[in-house]
């Protein structure tokens, strides 16, 4: 499977990574190369093989329903590029 420019553009937007137009071509060639190499997996017969869910042979642990965390808005926003009155600020979202 080779990736065309349009696909790379679409994927890059899905991943929210700006890619300048002049880099789309080289990037699509590079990604196609990697995908081509990956596609050797097609040789493996995986009929009736279950996909791996976890290598850890254990069951999901549960926590009790008690409040043990939170109550520190200043820690939560300490690293924020922009915050005010305890809120994070982002460019205005128009819905």
């Amino acid at each position: 499977m080779s990736l065309d420019k349009e696909t790379v553009h679409r994927i890059a937007f899905l991943a929210r990574v700006a890619v300048p137009d002049d880099q789309l071509d080289p990037l699509s060639r590079e990604l196609s190369g990697i995908l081509h190499w990956i596609e050797q997996l097609g040789e493996v017969d995986t009929t009736s093989v279950e996909p791996m869910t976890s290598v850890a042979e254990m069951t999901l642990p549960w926590r009790d329903d008690v409040v043990t965390d939170g109550g520190y808005p200043e820690r939560v926003t300490a690293n924020a590029p922009e915050s005010q009155d305890g809120f994070y600020l982002v460019p205005k979202v128009v819905e």
């Binding site: 009155d85 305890g86 809120f87 994070y88 600020l89 982002v90 460019p91 205005k92 979202v93």
Partner: peptide, 9 residues
């Protein structure tokens, strides 16, 4: 705010 949305988690 005129140019910002405020986020509360």
């Amino acid at each position: 705010h005129p140019s910002r949305s405020f986020i509360d988690l």
